[in-house]
Design a protein around this nucleic acid. Structure first.
Lengths: 182, 182
DNA sequence: ACCTGAACACCGTTCAAGT
DNA sequence: ACCTGAACACCGTTCAAGT
């Protein structure tokens, strides 16, 4: 990659991070280009789809996911507490940007999605929790990590799009947890 | 309302029903106006917000909701079967149009939403199921109709936006049901 | 009182012309 | 090889001019 191209590429990501933080993942790409001081064509050359840009934004995010899973698994306690702790971390992680819960949850198990590797990190982390609970015999037969991601992602999506009071989210996650434990 | 206004009003609803069936609730309102043979201003005069038009579309829908609740409640059987039957009917009812699950679920408990009366019908129907299960002592303490609507609505939203295989939805509803029953 | 449709603002996307 | 920015298509929304 040429030096000026690399500079533009980095600058777009930097600015997009800022714009998406302020306005969510559905923010105008035109504004990203403007703030980055590049033409719209340059943005499209580097990131043909919005999800490609989102994927680039999420690079450092994968570390936070595995760290959160580590932290949740380190907790010694009853299965329900572990599961609920992971659910809350999960919701927080995918809700960092407005529009995130829907985008991420819809991309799960979609091989065509540009953010599929990020979703795989998320399902893999969830699967570690599943494995632990399964080993303890705490999980209902038939439940798996993908189901968990979809259910918790669904709760996060509703909370995100409906501007739900954070206090209303906990009980919903509790129901999901109870439905997955023996 | 003047005769020609009434004629336009009815025609817009008729055409919108068709367009929304084909393309979902996020379809272009410009196309609705064009197909109805009215100017965009006329559409906006009658329906200042998209949700006002959706609300008009949903008029006959409320009967289907109460009928579905009647039918679910008529079933004699174990609590879980009743609950899952209602969940499946609920998902079907809000998924008639693409974009419906998100729109409807986000409007629940939102007093500002133009479709709030439709959501109230939905929560009221769900509450009838809740009352029945509560009387049988089958429900976990603390769960209510609004939580149910949000959880099942979340599942429907994920299924709708992520083009989920219908076969994958049933197990998710099963988890939610198990989480709400003793 | 109601309708029309031009007009505006905004956004995503493309591509010919430049360097 | 890469960038620019004009240009296009589309959409929601408004409003002055008409009837």
């Amino acid at each position: 990659m040429r030096a000026d191209a690399k500079r533009n590429y980095d600058r777009i990501i930097e600015v997009a991070r800022e714009v998406f933080r302020e306005q969510g993942y559905d923010a105008s790409l035109d504004e990203v280009a403007k703030r980055a001081g590049v033409g719209p064509g340059t943005l499209y050359r580097h990131f043909p789809r919005r999800e490609n840009l989102i994927d680039a934004i999420m690079q450092s995010w994968v570390d936070r996911v595995t760290e959160a899973a580590d932290k949740a698994l380190a907790h010694e306690g009853p299965p329900r507490a572990l599961l609920v702790a992971w659910f809350e971390a999960y919701v927080a992680l995918i809700s960092l940007h407005k529009g995130g819960p829907a985008k991420i949850t819809c991309a799960i198990e979609d091989p065509e999605s540009p953010i599929r590797t990020k979703c795989q990190t998320l399902t893999a982390a969830t699967d570690r929790v599943v494995q632990r609970l399964e080993a303890e015999g705490a999980l209902r037969p038939g439940v798996d990590a993908v189901q968990m991601c979809r259910l918790v992602g669904g709760v996060a999506t509703v909370a995100d799009q409906g501007n739900l009071d954070p206090a209303a989210v906990g009980p919903l996650l509790g129901v999901v947890a109870d439905g997955m434990l023996v």
